[in-house]
Nucleic acid binder design. Structure first.
Lengths: 362, 362
DNA sequence: CTGAAAGCGCTTACAG
DNA sequence: CTGAAAGCGCTTACAG
């Protein structure tokens, strides 16, 4: 724990000069003094105290990412993107799993505020729950006015996100792709309706159906949690409902993967009898069997963009919102609907699922 | 950015008294003074400056987790465990993806040292590369002597890990389980031989074979990276090698999942023709098709234990190494070997893979 | 180009 | 129970 005082003494210079050298300040120092300081620092294994420095500057070179759950591949990928951009700039990244609990979120932001974090990036969607969100805006306001950056990568209650995904457009494109494959009976696993992203994606589903001239069937829209279990449960409800279905579109990949697994357990072939598609394109999506058709989001890039936005804010530069592209990726989990079943379904509204014995599909 | 000075002024007390109240120091303060300070703090939205506090204490209430890649579910789960234990104690968690690059790792630890992080937890295995690891021990030594905690959750070059997994025993148990199923030709996807964990798991494979009285066949051991792609590539090499195989045991789940996928692409049924098993039991292992048989590691619990070890070290308490249990979990990806093929293979050493047309399996 | 001094926001002996 | 003062390790006007 050597301090700059000892470095200065050993180098035979003042603390001021030592500081100017080790902090790489833009300030004239003679070559020999510089060399002596550097050598003393090396010999003493001097590492500057970032806390002391942070006390004088406005904040610590640390950026926090608030995620719902770091264990969700969607968020892990974003955090990695933030880190990839932050590391070269000398920033460390703090991850906070809020579990979508506004109280935990507030507490985390309070802690971040006390640590004078330079930026906080909200990776997950906001929750529509104004009463519980009371504290958060106060903390964010205080951080902002203390010069810290605040970035949102998803829709939220407090305004437009700095990094924006066209959720509705992405889902609508996938609806279109399924329709092009021949599907007309497309179920939608919607995620939690309290989440702003989930709402946008649901809107995309409705829009996609409207564009294709398909009458929406409320029985085909299932509200779920945003994980494997939600996908499995939704399949059960769908099958119990008895409505005709040839495709299932899920509001995220985790739901889709859970749905595929449940369909397999029920003896229903994917994509032979039912096509399944997701959203996000998390890493495992391409490794499942069958590989998942999905709408790709550049998750890592979103993390990088998030940090870039923070940097701009910290530098006092103008920060225009960025819109991030989505792309439909068709893999093995989608196919044309079973021909016979499809025409029968169209003719009398029967469920192709029940009418179609396993293995008889194309 | 209100400071304790303003709180003290508004409350009409000295800074000392205000400090004693807001920092919850164990020091007598009159009830009315306390109340006035608390109220002033509330009114001013006072949040103490953790940097100033950290400058006086030995360190900042922050714990870092060094992982290979936060995007790997293995590490995400551990980080979550650390966070679950750290949050109630008021610690924030910093994640550092080192990509197994000793230079990056050193740089991260230097940064952590400069921030006076209270603890650094190494989640991943050490690399056997003494030359490159030169800087790391110096930083760790400095942190330790500054009172910070250092925890290892995996084998490494610098001694015994604080939290220890019986890697060899776990793999050997899975070999045993496969043998019990009737397998004798068990390939092993070993991971990178430079990683200490990978070596321990390979040793477990050898031990398992020895216990079962099976002659090891060097063609069946494939060194790989530790990801999906490594599993796929290993399957290709195995099939090209032409050695008889009825089961593939992978040193981690990512490898196993990549292998299953590649086998499916090659038209080989899992587990009908070939059984596949992994190690770790990451969350997706139970959702793949077929669900993955694996050796369960209590990853989240390991994270919690890691933080607990750090807390003990910080408190100056004795910190005995903990050994964490492993458990064989048999799911859909393993089954008895195809009977005909197995006996033929035993008789003349032919490959059951080639001899067994798709779908003819039990 | 160099250095003495003030100050960032706290905590903690020390004296009362 | 209360408060004045020193000091943690830096940076940065300010004077030379």
């Amino acid at each position: 724990v050597t301090s700059i005082t000892e470095v200065a003494r050993r180098a035979g210079v003042s603390v001021s000069t030592a500081s100017r050298v080790v902090s790489e300040a833009d300030y004239p120092v003679s070559a020999e003094a510089r060399e002596r300081v550097l050598e003393a620092a090396r010999e003493l294994d001097y590492v500057p105290n970032a806390l002391a420095r942070g006390l004088l500057k406005r904040h610590l070179p640390v950026v926090a990412v608030i995620v719902h759950d770091i264990t969700d591949p969607y968020f892990a990928e974003i955090v990695r993107g933030v880190e990839d951009a932050a590391a070269p700039a000398g920033f460390l990244v703090i991850t906070c799993s809020s579990e979508r609990d506004p109280a935990r979120e507030s507490e985390y932001v309070r802690l971040l505020r006390s640590m004078r974090a330079a930026a906080v990036i909200f990776a997950g969607s906001g929750l529509d729950d104004p009463a519980l969100n009371a504290e958060l805006p106060r903390h964010l306001g205080a951080m902002r006015s203390a010069g810290a950056a605040v970035v949102h990568l998803s829709p939220h209650a407090l305004g437009e996100p700095e990094i924006r995904v066209d959720n509705a457009g992405g889902i609508a494109s996938m609806v279109r792709a399924l329709v092009d494959l021949g599907h007309r009976s497309i179920a939608f696993l919607a995620g939690p309706s309290t989440l702003y992203v989930a709402r946008e994606r649901l809107a995309g589903y409705s829009r996609g159906l409207a564009v294709a001239g398909i009458e929406p069937d409320p029985r085909l829209v299932i509200e779920t949690t945003f994980d494997h279990a939600g996908g499995a449960a939704a399949v059960d409800r769908l099958l119990a409902g008895g409505a005709p279905i040839t495709a299932v579109l899920a509001a995220n990949d985790l739901l889709a993967i859970g749905a595929i697994r449940r369909l397999a357990e029920r003896g229903i072939d994917v994509p032979g009898q039912v096509s399944v598609a997701g959203f996000d394109d998390i890493a495992i999506a391409s490794v499942t069997a069958p590989a998942l058709s999905t709408v790709r989001l550049p998750l890592r890039e979103m993390g990088r963009l998030g940090f870039a936005s923070a940097e701009r804010q910290l530098a006092g530069e103008p920060d225009e919102p960025r819109v991030v592209p989505t792309e439909v990726v068709l893999r093995g989990s989608t196919a044309p609907p079973p021909a016979a079943a499809a025409s029968r379904a169209a003719a009398r509204g029967a469920s192709p699922l029940r009418a179609q014995p396993r293995g008889a599909a194309s």
